[in-house]
Simulated scan of single mutants.
Amino acid sequence: MKFSVLASGSTGNAVYVESGDQAFIVDAGLTGKKMEQLFAKIDRDIKKLSGILVTHEHSDHIKGVGVLARKYNVPVFANEKTWQAMTPSVGNIPLDQRFQFNMETVQAFGTLEIESFGVSHDAADPMFYTFHENGRKLAVITDTGYVSDRMKGIIRGADAFVFESNHDVNMLQMGSYPWSTKRRILSDVGHVSNEDAAIAMSDVVFEKDTHIYLSHLSKDNNMKDLARLSVAQTLQSVGIMPGEFVHLHDTDAEEPTKLVMV
Rank of each mutant, 00 (worst) to 15 (best):
L112A: 09
L217W: 03
F77G: 06
D60T: 15
V65H: 07
A160I: 09
K219W: 02
A85R: 06
D188C: 06
P242L: 05
Y16D: 01
V15N: 03
G29R: 13
A69E: 01
L214N: 02
I141H: 02
A139P: 08
E244Q: 15
F109I: 11
L259Y: 03
M151W: 01
E254Q: 13
I141Q: 07
Y177I: 08
S176I: 13
T142D: 01
H191A: 08
V26M: 11
N102I: 08
D196W: 08
V106P: 00
R98L: 03
K208F: 03
D122Y: 09
Q37M: 14
V65F: 07
Y213S: 03
D143I: 13
A198E: 02
R150L: 06
L248T: 02
Y72N: 11
G9I: 14
L229H: 04
K48Q: 12
L138E: 03
R136N: 04
I93M: 08
P178L: 13
D220L: 14
S165M: 06
S19W: 07
D159F: 11
F245K: 14
Q84H: 11
Q236K: 14
R156M: 06
M103W: 00
A198R: 06
N102Q: 13
R184E: 01
T251I: 08
S59P: 00
K48G: 07
G29H: 10
L95M: 09
K41D: 01
T130Q: 05
L38N: 00
Y177Q: 05
D125K: 13
M171D: 06
A23T: 08
S89E: 13
D149Q: 12
S230D: 05
Q233C: 01
E254M: 13
A69Q: 04
V192L: 15
S230I: 04
I185T: 11
G32F: 07
V231L: 03
I46N: 07
I52W: 12
I46W: 05
R136M: 01
P256W: 08
D225C: 01
H249Q: 05
T257R: 07
G91S: 09
E255V: 14
Q97E: 06
D143H: 15
L138V: 09
V74I: 15
S176K: 14
F101G: 01
I114C: 03
F206R: 13
N166M: 09
D168H: 11
S230V: 01
H247E: 00
A160L: 09
K152H: 02
R228N: 00
F128Y: 12
Y146F: 15
A227F: 02
M174Q: 15
S8F: 11
L186N: 04
V17H: 04
G239R: 06
G66V: 15
S202A: 15
F77A: 09
K34R: 10
A139L: 08
G66H: 12
P126C: 10
N222Y: 05
F117A: 09
V162S: 05
